[in-house]
């Protein structure tokens, strides 16, 4: 199992992702934004950071990096792609995922642990039982997920909502449990096929118990399981 971790100018979580993969016994290598050959990778991760200084909109410039045409081709061929934080913003800007990420409604950069509820979804990156509550930190200024109502109901019908911010007991507060104002408390979504997945929280930061938790492990191990099944 070999993960490719794409680095854009301004990415800053790529080492965490590689460390997480290595910790779990998987291979992981960096892919520079000018690369146009993704041969040999089983899955791709777009890490967090501030690609191209977040100018114009978060992810708007990164989306046109040379590597992105190949990332799109990889995903269209069924290859699994996960975008974390800025990576999610890039996938949304590239229209590989529905919706967009607006500035947090508090206008504050938020860095703290969150509780997330696993929803019933077709996401290949997470096979944890729906209803499970995970503890994973967030670290962003633009995580306020939004989409129009037509898109939202289509996502609901297709089981594309993967994670929701929730209270510690798994319930959702009446006024919303999202710390950033995200529509319907949405923290992570996938495409219809389930192979492209984006989330604002940082699972790579809770893989090695040395950094405070292991709830992020499932994201790496699930996709390995999914690929093993496909290879049959």
């Amino acid at each position: 199992m070999r993960f490719g971790v794409v680095i854009f100018p301004g990415s800053n979580c790529e080492q965490d992702v590689v460390h997480a993969a290595h910790h779990l016994g998987f291979e992981a290598e960096y892919v520079f934004h000018r690369e146009t050959d993704l041969a040999g990778f089983d899955a791709l991760v777009l890490p967090g950071g501030f690609s191209y200084g977040d100018y114009i909109r978060c992810g708007a410039v990164a989306r046109f990096s040379p590597v992105m045409s190949e990332v799109i081709r990889f995903a269209e061929a069924g290859g699994p792609v996960m975008g974390i934080c800025n990576g999610f913003q890039i996938l949304a800007e590239a229209h590989m995922l529905p919706g967009a990420l607006l500035r947090n409604d508090t206008l504050k950069f938020i860095c703290r642990d969150t509780t997330l509820r696993v929803e019933k979804s077709t996401c290949q990156w997470l096979d944890t039982a729906p209803g499970t509550v995970l503890h994973i930190p967030i670290n962003h200024n633009e995580g306020n997920f939004i989409c129009d109502h037509v898109t939202l109901s289509r996502m609901e019908d297709n089981d594309q909502i993967v994670l929701r911010y929730c209270e510690p007991d798994g319930s959702r507060a009446e006024g919303g449990s999202a710390p950033n104002g995200a529509l319907e408390d949405i923290a992570g979504v996938c495409n219809e096929r389930g192979n492209v997945f984006g989330l604002m929280p940082h699972p790579e930061r809770v893989v090695d118990p040395a950094t405070g938790g292991t709830d992020g492990q499932a994201f790496f191990t699930s996709i390995v399981g999914t690929l093993a099944k496909v290879a049959g």
């Binding site: 607006l102 500035r103 947090n104 409604d105 508090t106 206008l107 306020n144 939004i146 129009d148 104002g181």
Partner: peptide, 10 residues
């Protein structure tokens, strides 16, 4: 129209 504008609201 209808998209919440956090800086505007603030």
């Amino acid at each position: 129209q209808g998209i919440f504008d956090p800086p505007g609201a603030t």
